[in-house]
Amino acid sequence: MGFKLLSKLLVYLTASIMAIASPLAFSVDSSGEYPTVSEIPVGEVRLYQIADGVWSHIATQSFDGAVYPSNGLIVRDGDELLLIDTAWGAKNTAALLAEIEKQIGLPVTRAVSTHFHDDRVGGVDVLRAAGVATYASPSTRRLAEVEGNEIPTHSLEGLSSSGDAVRFGPVELFYPGAAHSTDNLIVYVPSASVLYGGCAIYELSRTSAGNVADADLAEWPTSIERIQQHYPEAQFVIPGHGLPGGLDLLKHTTNVVKAHTNRSVVE
């Protein structure tokens, strides 16, 4: 069995187990497998329904001669939608809004960016022009300005110390501490036991640490421990890039980060 097929099978099995364990909360999309990078042309966006009122959005972007996937989250909030992270750029984010209108038909009224990198804030200006209120932590807003990236308009308070959590509509926002970046936030959907790890969490097929220019490698494993301790009931975990899975993604990420750190020390 090929690795790609095995990865998709694991996603399907995880979703099936969740649907059985929580039949009222989960209505997993039966329309197909989780979209992969090879299936999404740059400039297009796919939506994948995880649970009743919960979707991931998947886009792709060219970077350094390669094409990478990027995940975000959409959560229903009454007759409105909360968006977590842009679709990595203005063109993708405009396509995301169009796809949401086509498939869901509810307005996106608020959006949260989970850290300051372009795959999370690139497209904020498109959201703002569409009347979406954009939010991020003060740290993310400051770092985005320093980096020359787009800056969300509103500040999220109460997320300055490791372990801080605040309720934001249908989700809980959690600051686990520094990891992929010093400002990275985690998003949890309690009604569906869905954990969105953003770039602080890796997919299972990833074996290298990737972009760690703004990471705190020493603190990252401790931050992941905080996530595990705060959300032990999480059933569906979405990484910032690639295929979702279960809580095993947290341990896998820790292993990859520690291996990278150990290699760096040896070198």
Rank of each mutant, 00 (worst) to 15 (best):
D85A: 00
R110W: 09
T261S: 12
T14I: 08
I186M: 06
E80G: 09
V67M: 15
T182G: 10
G169N: 05
E147M: 14
T222W: 12
T222C: 06
G53T: 14
G123F: 02
A144I: 07
I58P: 02
P35N: 07
L13H: 12
R141V: 08
A51L: 05
L5A: 15
S31H: 08
A213E: 11
E172N: 02
D118T: 14
V257C: 01
Q228S: 15
E99G: 10
S205H: 09
L9G: 11
S38E: 10
L217C: 01
K258G: 11
A15T: 11
L243E: 15
Y48W: 15
L173C: 02
I74P: 02
A209Y: 04
A178R: 11
R206C: 07
V124M: 10
R110M: 09
I100F: 05
T14F: 07
A234Q: 01
L173K: 00
G210P: 03
T114R: 00
W55H: 04
I58N: 05
F236S: 11
S30L: 11
H230M: 14
A234T: 08
R141C: 06
L10K: 12
R110V: 11
Y175M: 03
S264T: 11
E233L: 11
V189W: 01
V187R: 02
Y196W: 04
A98W: 12
G53S: 11
V108R: 03
G122A: 09
L6P: 08
S7W: 12
Y202T: 15
H241G: 00
Y188S: 02
E101W: 08
S193Y: 14
G43Q: 05
D183S: 01
S139R: 11
G169Q: 05
E150P: 04
L204K: 14
D248A: 12
Y175T: 01
I58V: 15
Q228I: 10
F63L: 07
D164Q: 13
A192N: 07
V237W: 02
L249W: 03
E172K: 04
W55L: 03
G198M: 06
T114F: 01
V256M: 08
E225F: 12
A51E: 09
A111D: 02
E150V: 04
V75P: 03
S70E: 03
S181I: 00
T134V: 05
L156F: 06
H241A: 02
L81V: 11
E219I: 07
Y48I: 15
Y202P: 05
V166A: 08
D79C: 06
L9H: 12
G240A: 06
N262K: 11
A200K: 01
N92E: 02
L6K: 15
K91V: 15
D29K: 09
T36A: 14
T253I: 05
D64N: 15
A259W: 10
S155R: 12
W88D: 00
G242E: 06
T109P: 06
Q229V: 13
G163I: 04
A136G: 09
A259R: 13
I40M: 15
W220A: 01
T153I: 11
S223E: 01
S70C: 05
V265L: 12
R263F: 12
A111H: 05
G65M: 08
W220R: 03
L204M: 14
L159W: 02
G53L: 07
S162N: 11
S27M: 12
H117I: 00
V257Y: 05
V121S: 00
Y175L: 02
F26E: 15
R120S: 11
P152E: 01
G32Y: 14
A215S: 10
P244W: 09
L83S: 01
A130F: 11
A136E: 04
Y48Q: 15
G169A: 06
S223Y: 04
G65H: 10
A178N: 09
Q61P: 05
H230W: 08
I50D: 03
Q229H: 14
F236A: 10
V266R: 14
I20S: 08
G53I: 08
D77I: 03
N71Y: 04
D79S: 10
Q103R: 14
S160P: 07
R76G: 07
V212L: 05
F236M: 09
S27Q: 14
S162Y: 11
I100E: 00
H230V: 11
G72I: 01
Y175R: 01
L159G: 02
R263W: 10
E172M: 03
G32T: 08
A111K: 02
P239S: 03
F174W: 02
E39Y: 12
L127H: 05
R141W: 04
D164F: 06
V257A: 03
A213D: 10
E203C: 07
K102I: 13
D79R: 10
A87V: 01
E101Y: 11
L243Y: 15
M1P: 06
V189S: 03
A192D: 06
V189K: 00
T222V: 11
Q49E: 11
E203D: 07
A209D: 06
G158E: 08
G163M: 05
I104R: 00
Q61M: 13
L156Y: 02
A59E: 08
G32F: 14
F63D: 04
S62K: 08
S191R: 11
T14V: 07
N262E: 13
A111T: 07
D164I: 06
Y202K: 06
E33Q: 10
D52N: 12
A90F: 07
A94D: 10
E39P: 10
G123D: 05
D29T: 09
K251E: 10
Y135T: 01
L9D: 14
T134Y: 01
E225A: 13
L243C: 08
Q61K: 13
A90C: 03
E150K: 06
L81I: 12
L247I: 13
V187M: 06
L73A: 04
A144Y: 05
G131I: 07
I20Q: 12
T93S: 02
P176K: 00
Q49Y: 15
T140N: 05
F3I: 15
H57A: 04
H115N: 05
L247C: 07
G122D: 10
V37M: 15
L10I: 15
K8G: 08
S62I: 07
P221F: 04
S264N: 15
V132Q: 01
L217Y: 01
L250G: 02
Y34I: 11
R226E: 03
H57K: 03
F174P: 01
S223T: 12
T254V: 14
G53R: 10
W220S: 01
E99R: 13
A95W: 05
W55I: 00
D119P: 01
L127E: 01
E157Y: 10
S30Q: 12
I151N: 06
H115C: 00
Y34M: 15
A178Q: 09
P41H: 12
E145I: 09
K102H: 15
G32L: 10
S38D: 11
L243S: 15
T60R: 07
S62Y: 04
A51F: 07
S31L: 09
R206L: 15
S161H: 13
S208Q: 10
I84A: 01
G148N: 10
F3M: 14
D125S: 10
G131E: 07
S56V: 15
S62M: 07
F26Q: 15
M1K: 06
A234C: 02
Q229D: 12
V189N: 03
A15W: 06
I100Y: 04
A95F: 15
T261N: 15
D64V: 12
A111I: 01
I186G: 03
A19K: 15
I84G: 01
A133R: 13
L156G: 03
F236E: 07
R120Q: 03
E172V: 04
A87T: 02
L97F: 02
P107W: 05
S160V: 12
W88E: 00
A19M: 15
P23R: 12
S22Y: 09
E219W: 05
L6D: 14
N184M: 01
A200G: 03
I17V: 12
V124Q: 03
T253C: 05
L97K: 00
F3R: 07
T153P: 05
K251W: 11
K258L: 12
T93F: 00
L5H: 15
P23L: 12
L13Y: 13
D85H: 04
G246W: 04
G123Q: 04
G43R: 06
R206W: 14
D29N: 09
G72H: 02
G2M: 07
A133T: 13
K258H: 12
V194H: 00
G245W: 03
V121C: 00
K251Y: 11
E233I: 10
G72R: 03
A111M: 09
T207P: 10
L250I: 08
S7R: 08
A259P: 09
V166Y: 08
L13S: 15
L127I: 03
E80S: 09
V166L: 12
P107N: 13
S139A: 13
E101C: 04
A234E: 02
K8E: 15
E203V: 05
Q228R: 11
A95D: 08
R120L: 01
V28G: 10
